[in-house]
Simulated assay, not measured.
Amino acid sequence: MYGFSKEIVERPGYWPSSAHICGFWFLPMAWQFSCDKCRELFSGDFNSPFEGILCANHAGLEDFLMGSSYSSLPIFIGLSSIGSMGFLRNPKSFLMVIKAVIESTDYRFILFSSGYQPLDSAIRSVASSAVESSVEAPALSNDSTLLFNNRLFCLSGSIPYSWLFPKCAAAIHHAGSGSTAAALFAGTPQVACPFLLDQFYWAERLHWLGVAPEPLKRQHLIPDIDDAASVNKAADVLLGAIRSALSPEIKAQATVIAQRLASEDGIGEALRILKEKVLP
C-alpha cells in the first residue's frame, strides 16, 4: 500500500494488482499540536471557527494570521528536520534572507523552527539585538517571537499544517512528503527547496502539476555565508519564486488539485484494503 494520491502520482501500468494507492495518510490533527493546552482546546472539527482554537499562550499566532490590521495572508516557511540533518549550517543567513525579502515587500512570514536549537538561538540573538537597539521584538510566549518589525512570526513548537496552511498565502518548505501533501490538500501554492532523497521528486512533481514554480536550490534559501551580496542574491531568487507562486495561474491550479483530493480518505482506504485483503 502506498500513502499518496493517484491524483498526484499516476499508478504505473506494470505494478501488480496487489499494489494499492490509498491516498495521503495524515495523523489526527489533535496529535500534531506540541502544546498540551492547544491540544485540549482543539475540538477535532476542521470546520470549526478559527477563534479560540489556540491557548492563551499562542493567541499571538491567531492574531498574526487573522488580525484585522493585516491586509494579506502570511506566507509559511519551514524546513522540518532539515536542520537536525545538518543542512542548516548557517541559521543567521537563513534569517537574513527572509529579512531581505521582508524589507523589499509587504509580505509577512510564519517561520517554524521545528525546535532546531541553532536556529532558535539565532532567532533569540536577533530578537535580543532588536531590543538592545530599541526596536521592538516582543517575545509572545516561551516558543514564539516576532522579528523584523513584527512581520516574521517565529514558532519553535508545532501546529497542524492542515489547520495552518489554509490560512497562508503560500507555503515554502523542503518538499517532504508530509508538507507537500498538507499544502496540496489545503490548496495552498507552494515553493519547494529540496535537500535530499525523495524531496527532489516531490519538488519536481509540484512544479509539473502547476502548483509551484521551479524548485529552489538550497543556496537560494540558505546561503553558506551571510555577507550582503550572498544574502541579497538569495533573497532575489526567493522573492521571484514567491511572486510566481502567488500568480493567478498557480493559485487557480492549487485550488483545482485540492478539489480533486477533497474526497479522498487515505487512512480509511488503507484500513478497507487491510480488512478485505489481509484480515478476511
Rank of each mutant, 00 (worst) to 15 (best):
S18D: 10
I21C: 15
I21K: 06
G23A: 07
P28H: 01
P28I: 03
M29W: 00
Q32N: 10
Q32W: 00
F33R: 00
S34W: 01
S34F: 11
D36L: 12
C38T: 01
C38D: 08
S43I: 00
S43M: 08
G44M: 07
D45G: 00
E51W: 05
C55S: 08
A56G: 06
A56D: 15
N57R: 12
A59T: 08
A59W: 03
G60P: 11
D63P: 03
S68T: 15
S68E: 12
L73N: 14
S81G: 07
G86Q: 04
F87T: 01
L88N: 10
L88W: 05
R89S: 12
R89D: 09
N90C: 15
N90Y: 07
P91D: 02
K92E: 15
S93D: 00
F94A: 02
V97K: 04
K99M: 13
K99N: 12
S104K: 15
Y107S: 03
G115H: 00
Y116S: 05
Y116C: 09
P118C: 02
L119D: 00
S121L: 10
S121E: 13
R124Q: 07
R124V: 08
S125M: 09
V126M: 07
A127C: 11
E132V: 05
S134E: 11
V135N: 02
V135R: 05
V135Y: 06
E136Y: 11
E136F: 11
A137R: 01
A139R: 15
D143K: 06
D143E: 14
S144M: 14
T145S: 11
N149M: 09
N150L: 10
R151W: 03
R151F: 12
L152I: 10
L152V: 08
C154V: 13
L155A: 05
S156R: 14
S156I: 06
S158C: 11
I159V: 14
S162R: 15
S162V: 07
W163G: 00
L164P: 05
L164A: 07
